[in-house]
Amino acid sequence: MNAPQRSMRTPLGRVRAHGASGQGTGHFIGQRVSAIALVVLGLWFLAAVMLEMHNPGFVSAIDFLSAPVNAVGVILLVVAAFYHMRLGMQVIVEDYIAKPSTKAVLLLLNTLGLIALGAGAVFAVLIVNFGA
């Protein structure tokens, strides 16, 4: 600080990228919005499965997912849940994993793994409804 350093960088340029990521508010809002969606979708899913799936067999599973309302509801549930839990697991990893490389790998897995599995789950509902 006090030593006269010869540098073309401005004071602002030197401190940039050393503070908070600036994404906390987006995380907070996304987490709350998906939580509100999940209050509705989660309760609906429990009720719908209890009322409409008469047994845990294959045929009743197909019947359940073939109803348009159920298909859309399950897709929305998967998307909202996966988004919500990606945010939550991100915080857990950031809290407990200190090693930067391990943290980066786990955060990457959390994001990419859930996108892959979520895409698969949505596609599965579409296949049940529109055939392979």
Partner: peptide, 22 residues
């Protein structure tokens, strides 16, 4: 929350199993 993370993964696997056939 962590348990439900596992539960949602299981839900996705259940959906994939339905699509995969009997």
């Amino acid at each position: 929350g962590a348990v439900l993370y596992g539960g949602a993964v299981l839900l996705a696997l259940w959906l994939l199993a339905v699509a995969a056939g009997p």
